[in-house]
Design a protein around this nucleic acid. Structure first.
Length: 569
DNA sequence: AGCCAGCAT
DNA sequence: GCATGCTGGCT
């Protein structure tokens, strides 16, 4: 088995130091990573929403395309490629559900029976919310584990730390290293029961489970295998609990790194998990078309494949494809499982246009639709964390067959985010993109926020606003009148007689002053976005509150307004 | 910083 | 396909 020698670490002797250390990272010989993903997630979401029976075949539609097929439906030979018509022929009682959409007249996305891509826009928000629920549940169920949400339906879980804890708990004698010291090898591991904790990926064909007269599964048990079995146990109970409480079935792969976890996760779908022991890795990788490996599925994979075929020398010198693939894997997969903030770093709304935009002015219609969705979503996200704010707003437009072009601009911090603010920025970017042309050919538009963070700047502005009043008042008491320093424009704002319209208000006058100044910034943002006159802070108080007026207007303008307008085509 | 290409589900 | 999201590289 010379192939084993190329694997280095797996055959490395595991010592007391390895077991007792907690900071060995990706080099840890006891490292355990799982990839857990939801089975046919969008379809499962719809089943949960509709209370559909578990064995009901169901597909999810986006316009005319099937984007999710649950496992009962797959039994009928239905796939994502199928046409709805064919699917219904294969399975007449198939449930067909269209994703939620925004439609004219409705403020919230919903499920309608008259969806039309010319007038509606898809909303995937329900799936995002369900995804967050699942992730939160796994975090609850797996304390001491690092969890990285990798996509809407997948998460990596690092069990290393927890598995080591449990090894020590179950084998307390390991806590006391022998006199030879921490670097002496651990005693032989106990035998392992793999029952009920998933599918053990075999090293060779199911047909020949014996080697050298011994069952393969009894060969070469290591402490890493012990850690694997413990992790598999934890993963199994967590998955069962998610299924029971939220209704989502999942599949998982458990192995020594992210790549292998990801790979093995799809071995036994749905509702099952696979365990990949180090000793079977070479056998597992050998027959694997390497395009299946993450990051090798696209252009890079093709390039490498070409290079590989071209250079026969390399092939000869390296011999086995499995080894070569493994070398690639080693190089790339030093990646840690790292917790991500539950808040995404970008937020995007996009729309492909079956009827391209021809008249440049018609761009505003779809931009406002996209802006309305972003407003809803960002305001929603801010309920979790009011500090979050995007650094920039980006507009992409695909012209005809050309690749998409984009323009972006910094996005200012404003307290009350409205559709208008976003749309006005979007409109400005649209003008930059289309230039002077009144006639265009835009087949897709995409509006997004980037660099979303719980920014200190945003937080400070809010804190200043709420708390600054007190501090400033003290400073100001000696001097004449009310004033404060605006953290946004950096100017000292003083109360002038013009603002002092004795409305017998019960509010703190300084708070009031700040609010009015804030309104100025709000108005200025709008004005800037409109490429029109820019006010100066000092003149703001003299004006008859244009911001307020605009705001009231804006509040009445929900998403329905923009759908109400005809996309003139 | 702004824009794009590429990869992913 | 379509609707998302992330990262890295280039200017």
């Amino acid at each position: 088995m010379e192939v084993h020698q190329h694997f280095g670490d797996p055959s490395l002797v595991i010592t007391y130091r390895h077991l007792l250390s907690h900071n060995l990272g990706v080099r840890d010989p006891l490292r355990i990573v799982a990839l857990c993903d939801s089975d046919a997630f969008y379809a499962a979401c719809e089943m949960v929403r509709l209370g559909t029976a578990e064995d009901t075949p169901l597909v999810v539609l986006q316009w005319d395309s099937i984007i999710a097929v649950n496992y009962p439906a797959r039994k009928y030979g239905i796939s994502r490629m199928s046409k709805v018509k064919d699917a219904l022929q294969k399975c007449p009682h198939l449930q067909v559900v269209h994703v939620a959409t925004y439609k004219e007249g409705a403020k919230e996305p919903g499920y309608w029976d008259d969806v039309d891509t010319k007038t509606h826009k898809v909303s995937l928000d329900y799936y995002r919310r369900e995804s967050l629920k699942v992730a939160a549940k796994f975090k609850d169920l797996l304390p001491g584990c690092e969890i990285e949400k990798a996509s809407i339906d997948e998460a990596f879980i690092d069990f290393t730390k927890r598995a080591k804890e449990l090894i020590l708990e179950r084998h307390p004698y390991l806590a006391n290293p022998p006199p030879e010291g921490l670097d002496s090898p651990l005693p032989p591991p106990p035998s392992i029961s793999w029952d009920g904790i998933g599918h053990l990926i075999p090293s060779i064909d199911e047909g020949q489970l014996f080697e050298e007269g011994k069952p393969v599964e009894e060969m070469s048990v290591s402490w890493h295998d012990v850690a694997l079995s413990i992790s598999a146990e934890l993963m199994q109970t967590a998955r069962q609990e998610v299924l029971k409480t939220l209704g989502y079935s999942t599949s998982a792969g458990i192995a020594r790194n992210k790549f292998l976890a990801k790979l093995s996760a799809s071995d036994k779908k749905p509702n099952n998990q696979s365990i990949l022991r180090n000793s079977v890795i070479p056998y597992y990788l050998k027959p694997l078309p390497f395009q299946k490996i993450r990051y090798l599925g696209g252009k890079l994979g093709m390039a490498i494949a070409k290079e590989y075929e071209a250079s026969t020398d390399m092939q000869k010198s390296f011999g086995e494809q499995a080894i070569w693939v493994w070398e690639v894997l080693r190089g790339i997969d030093r990646s840690e499982v790292k917790e991500k903030t539950s808040q995404n770093k970008s937020m995007m709304a996009s729309k492909n246009l079956p009827k391209p935009i021809v008249d440049a002015k018609d761009g505003y219609h779809w931009i406002r639709v996209l802006a309305a969705e972003l407003a809803l979503r960002l305001n929603d996200a801010r309920k979790q964390d009011p500090r979050i704010w995007p650094k920039a707003i980006v507009l992409h437009a695909r012209k005809g067959y050309e690749a998409a072009r984009s323009k972006q601009a910094p996005f200012p911090f404003v307290r009350d985010l409205t559709v208008d603010i976003i749309a006005n920025h979007g409109d400005r970017l649209w003008r930059e993109l289309v230039g002077n042309a009144q006639s265009v050919h835009v087949s897709a538009v995409q509006l997004s926020f980037s660099g979303i963070e719980a920014s200190e700047a945003g937080q400070r502005q809010i804190e200043d606003f709420l708390q600054g009043a007190k501090r400033t008042r003290v400073e100001d008491e000696a001097s004449e009148g009310l004033s404060f320093t605006c953290s946004r424009c950096g100017k000292v704002i003083r109360q002038t007689d013009s603002i002092r319209s004795g409305e017998g208000s019960e509010a703190d006058p300084l708070v009031k002053l700040r609010m009015e100044h804030d309104d100025f910034h709000y108005a200025q943002d709008l004005a800037k976005a409109d490429n029109r006159m820019v006010l100066t802070p000092d003149s703001a108080g003299e004006r008859p509150r244009p911001a307020k007026k605009k705001k009231e207007n804006a509040e009445r303008q929900g998403i329905e307004r923009f759908f109400g307008r005809k996309a003139s085509d």
